[in-house]
Write a protein that binds this DNA or RNA. Structure first.
Length: 284
DNA sequence: CACCATGTTCCTTG
DNA sequence: CCAAGGAACATGGT
């Protein structure tokens, strides 16, 4: 469940539930997910520690815990990769097939499951230091974006995925923001006009803010096994419940009419990943 | 069997 | 040295 809005909604859901909970049992089924922390250290540090705080930074979940009887807090960093999920379930419940790590908290277990195991659940917090500003924070100004783009020849779509430019935008919302700003995905970053930079900054914020608002109102079954449970970014019309219809405006809509002009949406590959765009609304 | 998938990192090439 | 592109990671869905 990966991009900024999904992580934000997850963090808001989880933070109050974890507050004050103590880790009483640790099970690591996939060592690669906790790397580079060795298992012995992971277990020693987490055992008996209690959750103090949970915040989001980019696509990362930043857990702050306090060791038993000691004042010095430490960080546990989570990243869901492409298919990771984190949720609480009853301790008696059987762990799902792709559970990577489980922290037993007494009545509940905190489960980190990840089908493809691309994610992380580690004591190594160095990754957050390399992130650019939060798109919804004050540092992400039109000036900042303009300055940063001026130095790059990379296609704007590819540039938006660079987490050191800004933190949290992924493949879905990059396409969505460019569509909202009516910017052709292929143009070199440094070729954006001042007006386009302005629209892009505003569109990024709008698209992410809307997605958070949407995710906050949808009933989610975090531990569920249905195709949409806890995976609310899939919002394509497919005859499913109204909640899920027509949320995304271009992503994964190849061959379907543009919501603005009716022209058929196209898909192309940039940097090995799909970009969706309207050839008319996003003309060069 | 083929191709596609919300992400990041590492390696090669130019 | 830097930027850009591609493969790798691992599993599942269509």
């Amino acid at each position: 469940m990966p991009e900024l809005p999904e992580i934000e909604v997850l963090v808001r859901h989880l933070a109050p539930l974890l507050q004050g909970q103590t880790v009483r049992h640790i099970e690591v089924r996939r060592l690669k997910v906790i790397r580079p922390t060795p298992l012995a250290e992971f277990s020693r540090v987490l055992d008996g520690a209690s959750f103090q705080e949970l915040v989001r930074r980019g696509k990362y979940l930043v857990f702050t815990l306090r060791p038993a009887g000691r004042p010095q807090p430490f960080i546990l960093l989570g990243h869901l990769g492409m298919t990771g999920r984190i949720y609480l379930q009853q301790a008696a419940t059987e762990l799902p097939r792709h559970t990577a790590v489980m922290l037993g908290l007494g009545a509940k277990n905190l489960v980190y499951e990840d089908t493809r195991y691309f994610g992380r659940f580690t004591l190594d917090a160095r990754a957050v230091a390399r992130l650019g500003p939060e798109p919804l924070g004050p540092a992400f100004s039109v000036d900042y974006l303009g300055q940063a783009l001026r130095r790059s020849a990379q296609a704007i779509k590819v540039k938006l995925l660079d987490q050191s430019l800004l933190a949290g935008v992924g493949n879905i919302y990059a396409s969505e923001a460019l569509f909202a700003a009516r910017i052709p995905p292929r143009i070199p970053s440094r070729r954006l006009t001042a007006v386009q930079v302005q629209r892009l900054q505003q569109s990024l914020r709008a698209v992410l803010t809307e997605a958070i608002a949407w995710g906050s109102t949808v009933p989610l079954d975090w531990a569920g096994t249905g195709p949409r449970d806890g995976l609310f970014y899939y919002g394509l019309a497919d005859g499913a419940a109204d909640y899920y219809t027509e949320r995304l405006r271009v992503y994964d809509r190849e061959g379907r009419p543009c919501v603005n002009c009716g022209t058929l949406i196209r898909r192309m590959v940039q940097g090995g990943r799909s970009t969706f765009y309207c050839p008319r609304c996003q003309r060069g």
